[in-house]
Computed example of a mutant assay.
Amino acid sequence: MLDVTKKLVELLDLSPIGDDHFQGDSEDLGFPHVFGGQVLGQALMAASRTVDDRLCHSLHAYFLRPGNHSMPIDYEVQRVRDGGSFTVRRVIARQDGKEILTGSMSFQAAEDGLSHQFEMPDAPAPETLRSEQDWGKMIADKVPEKLRDVLTRDRPIEIRPVNPGDPFNPKKRPPYRQNWLRSAGILPDDPVLHRCLLTYASDFSFLGTSLDPHGRTFMSSDMQVASLDHSIWFHRDFRMDEWLLYDKDSPSSSGGRGFNRGNFYTRDGVLVASTTQEALIRERQG
């Protein structure tokens, strides 16, 4: 396992600090606040630690406050229900005594049933694309020095965008995005870890889908942007150390909010997970 991948796996490996209470470290990715995907992934790990022999099939969370990446995060798990087929947990994430995220996760015992799915959309093979790290190296000399390391450093999740935009001169584009992603190293055979890692990765470049029709990016100085909520449904088993296509769209934006949807497909076209997110995309006045 590569060092960067091992570091991310360790980030998700929470420490127990009491009955159904856990603590996780924070990671500085160069953003002003804690990356939302980190809090989501750790929250799912905390809930999973209180459930035996069942995997998460859905997660719904609200971001309440921005997180501070210089502080650890405490996770409280509440046991809502333990049924014959489904188990429900509520998770509250806190820093400095204040809630930064609240979410509910549902777990299901394995069973067979009716099955159908959308067909996988067309996309170029990941081998034909540059990674975000490669793109970062190409533009590193055009950004402030403090951002160069953020753009060029090794990443635990390798992301290869299908049609990346120009961050220095964004154009109005249809609200559709695609990228391939996978972990940068081989992972253990732990389905809980793979779900937590997908949860972590699902927040990358998701919000920006609703900005594309307006020719803006999260770096635009006249925009205030933040994730408001995030939901995931896990449909089928998968591995995060194998390529997954993340196909995203934004059906609507209004009232200072942008709505985003996504589907994860394996290389052979199996739909393994779906996501939704609403984000604050507010134009700054003055």
Rank of each mutant, 00 (worst) to 15 (best):
L245R: 06
S131M: 08
S252T: 14
M219N: 08
D229L: 05
R160T: 05
T217F: 00
S231Y: 03
H194I: 01
V162D: 09
P175I: 02
A201F: 14
P251K: 11
L228Y: 13
G136H: 02
V143A: 02
D122Y: 07
D149I: 09
R261L: 15
E242I: 06
L244Y: 08
Q224A: 14
R182D: 05
R155Q: 14
T128Q: 11
E132Y: 07
D166Q: 05
R261G: 14
S250Y: 05
S220G: 02
D222P: 03
V192E: 11
V150C: 04
D237T: 14
Y200L: 07
K172M: 13
S183Y: 06
Y200C: 08
S250G: 04
F259T: 12
L198M: 15
S221H: 12
W180Y: 11
L129D: 15
Q224N: 11
A140F: 11
A140Q: 11
C196I: 09
R177G: 01
T217M: 00
D166S: 05
I157R: 10
V225M: 06
R182A: 05
K146W: 11
Y246A: 11
L147N: 14
V150F: 07
E132D: 15
R195H: 12
S220W: 02
P174C: 09
R148L: 11
S253A: 15
G258L: 09
N260W: 05
S250Q: 03
M240G: 05
D190G: 03
R236I: 13
S254N: 13
S254M: 09
S210A: 15
R148K: 14
H235F: 07
L198K: 10
V192G: 06
D141Y: 08
S231P: 06
D249A: 07
D189L: 09
S227D: 11
P170M: 06
A125F: 08
I186M: 09
P156C: 12
S183P: 04
M120I: 10
P126D: 00
D122V: 04
S202L: 10
R239W: 13
S252I: 15
K172I: 06
M120V: 06
A201C: 15
S254Q: 14
K146G: 03
R153N: 09
P124G: 02
P251H: 08
N163E: 04
F168C: 00
K142D: 09
L181M: 04
M138R: 08
L207R: 05
W243G: 01
V225I: 15
L181G: 01
P124E: 02
H230G: 04
M240E: 12
K171R: 10
D229A: 04
D203L: 07
